[in-house]
């Protein structure tokens, strides 16, 4: 059991072991001093990041029509996934699923971008080392920030719509 801003967080045995033996426990201890009760702001921030991620990929679908079909399909999936996640996050019941879908989409987008610039993608060797693409940087930034934001929700630092803080003092 941990706390964030005095708010109790339940942790499973695996999480407890990881926190204790990786040194992340100290970081988690520091995070316990921070807690925000801004569910709508948190969700709006998450939706904005996913919208940015989706928009970049939608733009690339329209702009880079000569790219391999699998890459176009991948961009369509990311754009659709980000849009779906953003919509789900604003609904009451599936909001949590929306956050997880958003994280999955962000993680994939981040991983694919990093792989494309390092190991390379099939039939796209020209992307290796091309870090000077602003849309790529926006993709990395939006995906990483969304993952961090979702992490802060899971850590109890933030709460997202429709949840609210139950602080009595």
């Amino acid at each position: 059991m941990g706390t964030a801003g005095g708010h109790e967080i339940r942790r499973g045995p695996l999480a407890t072991v990881v926190l204790r033996y990786t040194g992340l426990g100290r970081l988690a201890g520091l995070l316990e001093y921070f807690a925000f009760a801004l569910p709508r702001t948190t969700t709006t921030a998450g939706v904005t990041l996913l919208a940015g991620l989706g928009a970049v990929h939608a733009y690339l679908i329209a702009d880079a029509t000569a790219d391999p079909a699998y890459l176009i399909a991948y961009r369509e999936l990311i754009a659709a996934g980000a849009s779906a996640a953003a919509v789900l996050m604003t609904l009451r019941r599936p909001a949590r699923a929306g956050w997880w879908l958003g994280s999955a989409v962000s993680a994939v987008a981040l991983a694919v971008h990093l792989v494309s610039r390092t190991a390379g993608l099939p039939r796209m060797p020209q992307l290796i080392g091309r870090w000077d693409c602003p849309l790529g940087t926006v993709t990395m930034g939006a995906a990483a920030l969304f993952l961090a934001l979702h992490g802060s929700v899971l850590a109890g630092v933030n709460v997202a719509f429709p949840r609210r803080r139950d602080w009595h003092d």
Partner: peptide, 16 residues
């Protein structure tokens, strides 16, 4: 009002 804060930087909770 207690409980209406939008941010807190403490690990303390007050007794009920």
């Amino acid at each position: 009002r207690p409980g209406s804060e939008w941010a807190r930087f403490t690990r303390k909770t007050m007794p009920r």
